[in-house]
């Protein structure tokens, strides 16, 4: 696809142009952390922005989603479970990081494959365009390069922005991205000089990633050896089994479906769920195969670093964003766990 230029001084015009046809979401600082908020004209891309607290996965896999509804009564439509009306207005995120974008591609495997297509996920993702911002200054907790991603990785993005000094180089990666740039009036082609600068930015940023996590031997380990490894009790001791890691993680996709009823109206709602919580594996019979904390902690890391690796054969279910490392209340570090698993 093509490389175009957006003049930095015209960035607000670019956002305004996008706003004419869709909702524009930008990382905005509120309290002490960033979250994606609709662009109303005043917000700007903050140069201090590293990443949002919550991952953008909530844009496509909603925290709580009304899937179906049903009513008692005798009128037309009652006594039948209907799909809840949902609209999927076009949206664009400007400023998403490549790790979070790759996460969408990764999670997409789960919700959009030949066997199953989740209509809510598929529709929401289709109506969303991702304009990424490459990381010039990766955090010390980022380890994207160890897990098949990188500060300028293009997978999952429709457009990738490079800060080449005076301007931004906008690389259209998909047709959707190409169309978006056209719509916003971005026409000026980037010359070879700027393209070279962009490539240099990528190289420089990749070298800046300090955290290197060994994951190369995970696929060769025997599953049962890892499962029965002696270190799980130790790793899991501090864990308080909250949902922080799973809720902040861009690649965690587990959900729980709940029916809520008020008088004659019922709703079937999908909420985020966490394998860390004790009820996650509670069966209807009352049996729970993972009552112990260590079992649940082991499950999460095995899923991300082994089961997913074995099932799809192209790396771990982690994009190295570092949110779990930064926000786990007890500092359980996936990098340390991966090291231990890799070295077993």
């Amino acid at each position: 696809m093509s490389d175009k230029i957006i003049l930095k001084e015209r960035m607000q015009d670019f956002l305004e142009a996008l706003r004419k046809t869709r909702e524009v979401l930008l990382p905005v600082k509120e309290k002490e952390f960033y979250r994606l908020k609709p662009f109303t004209g005043a917000e700007k891309l903050d140069p201090q922005f590293q990443n949002t607290r919550l991952s953008p996965k909530g844009l496509v896999l909603s925290e709580s989603e009304r899937m179906f509804e049903y009513r008692l009564g005798k009128e037309q439509g009652a006594q039948i479970v209907h799909e809840a009306p949902a609209d999927y207005p076009p949206r664009v995120v400007v400023g998403i990081r490549p790790c979070d974008a790759k996460a969408f591609a990764l999670v997409n495997r789960n919700f959009d494959n030949p066997e199953f297509k989740d209509p809510w996920w598929v529709n929401r993702l289709a109506s969303l365009t991702l304009v990424g911002l490459g990381c010039d200054e990766p955090c010390s907790t980022c380890f994207c390069t160890s897990v098949g991603c990188g500060p300028f990785h293009e997978e999952g993005l429709d457009v990738l922005l490079f800060d080449v000094g005076h301007d931004l180089l906008a690389r259209a990666i998909t047709e959707k991205g190409e169309r978006l740039l056209m719509e916003a009036g971005v026409r000026q082609e980037a010359d070879d000089d700027l393209k070279k600068k962009a490539a240099q930015l990528k190289e420089k940023a990749e070298k800046k990633i300090r955290s290197q996590v060994p994951t190369d031997r995970l696929k060769d380990k025997k599953l049962n050896d890892l499962f029965n490894a002696p270190f799980w009790e130790d790793v899991a001791f501090a864990c308080i089994n909250c949902g922080t890691c799973t809720f902040l993680c861009p690649t965690c996709w587990c959900f729980d479906i709940q029916d809520e009823v008020k008088k004659n109206q019922g709703d079937r709602i999908r909420n985020w769920d966490s394998c860390m919580l004790p009820l996650f594996t509670l069966h209807a019979s009352g049996h729970n195969p993972r009552t112990q904390k260590a079992q649940r902690v082991r499950q999460r890391f095995m899923h991300k670093l082994k089961y997913y690796v074995d099932k799809y054969g192209d790396g771990v279910a982690c994009v190295g964003c570092g949110r779990c490392v930064n926000y786990c209340p007890v500092n359980i570090d996936i990098r340390e766990v991966a090291k231990r698993m890799n070295a077993l």
């Binding site: 909603s62 925290e63 989603e65 008020k262 109206q265």
Partner: peptide, 8 residues
């Protein structure tokens, strides 16, 4: 007051 669940 809980009405129908307010979802995102």
């Amino acid at each position: 007051v809980k009405g129908r669940a307010e979802v995102s």
